[in-house]
Structures are given as structure tokens and as C-alpha cells.
Amino acid sequence: MTATETKTGTSKAGTKVMTLLEAITDALRHEMKQDDRVLVFGEDVGKKGGVFGATLGLQDEFGEQRCFDSPLSECGIIGTGIGMALYGMRPVAEIQFLDFIYPAFDQIVSEAAKMRYRSGGEYTCPMVIRSPYGGGIRGGHYHSQSSEAYFCHTPGLKVVIPSTPADAKGLLIASIRDEDPVMFLEPKALYRHAKGEVPLGEHVVPLGKARIARDGTDVTILCYGAMVPVCLAAAETAAQAGRSIEVIDLRTLVPLDEATVLESVKKTGRCVIVYEAPKTCGYGAELSAIVGERCIEYLEGPIVRVAGFDTPFPYTLEHLYMPDQKRVLAGIEKTFVW
């Protein structure tokens, strides 16, 4: 297969208000319709339509060959997915919760991620691994983790995290059409809470392009996934106190849109990074390093990380673990007074 650039764009078919979850189903349906190589599978994705309902109706519409339940083995789901991709299909594998992906870790990091490189480009692995991640649903540590950093640390994997319904659709379609393996992590806290206009029909949002979710001039907040609405709310509160906050929704962690990040920080001179994973060695550490390396001369205050604590994800104390608006606001203040 030749390496072609994925075409991006949006059809003129109008829009419809959808939840983030519905937008994902819409993207899957769109791709299954237009490309019969696209296969959707995982635990409970068939008749039940997934534990959250992301694949609802797909088995009825496309049959059991195109949308099917797998035995209970993440290793099997990803390993067979790699085999399908090698044979020319476009597998979209669902891992029921990101917390359950570890039995497949070897297949992801040793196989999918390295296939292109180790075969000198002879073999490639264009597959998407979809999985709900993150807290906010009282799921305890096995239904709440944000382990994106493990995957960002693995060369050969792209890592995508949408925060709006329109992006969920456009980024998922781009991921399915991408020639490399993509971890597509879905903020489950936003599945039904994020609602918005989604273009009908063709809608592709390119990987590697961040979105400026709110313009501002005093502080840049870098965030992704379920932290985006938290940061937007904090920015609104800060605005009432006279602070102008720019909120950047990264959309893709790998590849990162460094240009947008650096341009914003150079403009504001202050940077807060918000993520819900444990602070140490989280993706925010990488962002902080990039900002420090590339534009320290523009900074007027310390780079501040607001993140989960370095504990396993708790159950009853989840509300204290998850970064909230107040912690983001405190982070903003730290860039002024330190």
C-alpha cells in the first residue's frame, strides 16, 4: 500500500446534535458503509452494542461478519486485530475499558507499534484501538484510569483523544483511514455529557492539529479529553476576575501540534497543563519539557501542572483525586504568584 495523505474535509450534508457517544457510532457506521475492510469487534460490541452503547445497531446493520463479539481476551482482540490488519483489513478493536488493556500490552507495544519499523515498511498495521478512558463515573481504579502516557511513550503508536462530538467523529474517521496504529481514547465522562452539532456524512479532522477551544491572552491552558470542559469552565470563572485564558484542546497527543502550543505560550507567557492521569511522568511532563525547551525566554511564571495525584485511582475519594475547576484556578494563580 502506498503512503497517501488522508484527505480531510467535511461534506455539506448539514449537521445534527449528537452526544459524543452517538458521534462515535456515527463515525463507525460511516466508515463501515464506505469501506468494507472496516471490521468492528471486541467484548460485548455485538448484540449488546458495547457496555456504553458505542456500537449499538452496527451488528444489525452490517452483520456478524463485520461487527462481532470476541472471547474475553484483550490479548486475543489486539493480536487477531494485528493479523487482520496485516492481511489488508481495517480493524477497529474495542477494549471495554482502558484499564483492561494490559493483557494486550505486548501485542500493542511489541507488535502493532513496531511492525512498520522492524519490517522496513514491508508490513504495516493500520488499526484502531478504541477504548473508554478516564474518571468521573465512580468506577474505582479498574474503570477510571488515564494511562495514555504508556502509549505516548511507545514510538509507532498514534494517540488521539477527542473532547467534542464533532471531533470524536472527525478524528475517529481520520484514525480509521490512517496507515498506522492509532490508540483512540474516549473520555467516558463526556460520552453522554458532551453534546453538540456534528456534520452529517463525511467529516474528517486531521490528526496532529490542535484546537483552540477558547482565545485568550494572559495564560495558556493545555489539556485534552474530559479535562477540556473543566478548563473551559475555569477559564470562564477566571475571565470574571479579569484574567484572559486561552484553552488549547490538543486532540492528538501523538503526533503533537507543537506549533499551536508554542505559538500560544509565546503569546501569553504563562502555561498551565491539566491532565487527570497521575502527575509523575504523565503526558503533561512532556508538554512541560517542550515548553521549557522551546520557549522559556517567553515565560513570565513557572509552568504549572494540575494533574491526578500519584496514587492508584481511588473509589470513594475520586472527587478529590480528579482535577476540578478550583484546582485549575489555583494552577492559574500559581503562574502569577510563586
Binding site: 468521573g136 463515573i137 465512580r138 474503570h143 473543566v230 476540578d324 478550583k326 484546582r327 489555583a330
Partner: peptide, 17 residues
């Protein structure tokens, strides 16, 4: 310290949504 300054606490929904 954060809690002493007026309480933090994210809105954490129900399992599953």
C-alpha cells in the same frame, strides 16, 4: 491546603453514565 481554601471536589457522576 486547597481544601482549607474553600474545598475542592469534582463532579463525579455515576457508574456507568
Amino acid at each position: 491546603e486547597l481544601m482549607s481554601k474553600g474545598g475542592v471536589g469534582a463532579d463525579v457522576g455515576h457508574f456507568p453514565l
